[in-house]
């Protein structure tokens, strides 16, 4: 129990510290690397709660795919930090507002937890006990039965986002030469090579 407590505080402290470093690091690439560290600490916290599936998916999706592309883009951007910092003061009120809203939401969630501690237990009621089915199975059963329409709807939202990105970037340029592998492979020797006997002094 003590070990778990120590692990929790290590993960939580590192999570907050790397979160602070994300916004305070001078180099944007360092910021992304700290963001990845923060994802890892969050995954560790999920593991401590026994949510191993969520932890692994967090690492696979966010660290393994999203953050790679993020890093990819940030590394190639040519950002002028001085200009960036000058503009920061103008959007500060907006940022503060977003932060306040998030804080209020967190307070609402945690406040509900403290005022009525059994609410969480009622909400979690459809999930069977942890010793009967594993975490992953419980999640699957819930997601493909009770919440199947919401699950499908979120898939559709992602699909629309993908189509939107394609529509925004797709343009047909004339004169682009593309490799047609099927045509290349189906070429036969007799279609392209002609052997001729060339008489001396006459040419083809």
């Amino acid at each position: 129990m003590i070990l778990q407590g120590i692990a929790f505080y290590v993960f939580a402290a590192l999570l907050v510290a790397s979160g602070v470093m994300v916004i305070s690091a001078r180099n944007p690439v360092h910021s992304v690397l700290f963001l990845i560290l923060a994802f890892f600490q969050a995954a560790g916290l999920c593991l401590l709660m026994g949510a191993e599936f969520i932890a692994m998916i967090l690492i696979i999706v966010y660290v393994g795919a999203v953050a790679v592309l993020f890093l990819f883009v940030v590394m190639m951007l040519d950002i002028n930090f001085r200009e960036l910092r000058q503009g920061a003061m103008e959007v500060l009120p907006l940022g503060a507002l977003v932060g306040l809203i998030l804080l209020a939401e967190l307070a609402a969630v945690l406040g509900g937890w403290i005022v009525a501690p059994n609410v969480a237990a009622i909400a979690g009621a459809p999930t069977p006990a942890i010793d009967q089915v594993s975490n992953t199975q419980a999640l699957g059963r819930l997601m493909y039965t009770q919440y199947v329409y919401l699950f499908q709807a979120s898939g559709v939202v992602l699909l629309i986002a993908m189509i939107g990105a394609i529509v925004l970037t797709l343009r047909h340029r004339p004169g682009v030469r593309k490799q047609n592998i099927g045509a290349q492979i189906s070429r036969r020797r007799e279609d392209v090579v002609v052997i001729r006997k060339v008489p001396t002094g006459e040419g083809v």
Binding site: L33, I36, E52, F53, M56, I57, I59, I60, V63, G64, A65, V68, L71, F72, M75, S134, N135, T136
Partner: peptide
């Protein structure tokens, strides 16, 4: 662990960071 295959997949997907960094 219960999610062994996901763990392996997660670790192998992290390999790209060493190279990119």
């Amino acid at each position: 662990i219960n999610v062994g295959v996901l763990y392996l997949f997660a670790i192998s997907s992290l390999g790209v960071y060493g190279i990119v960094m």
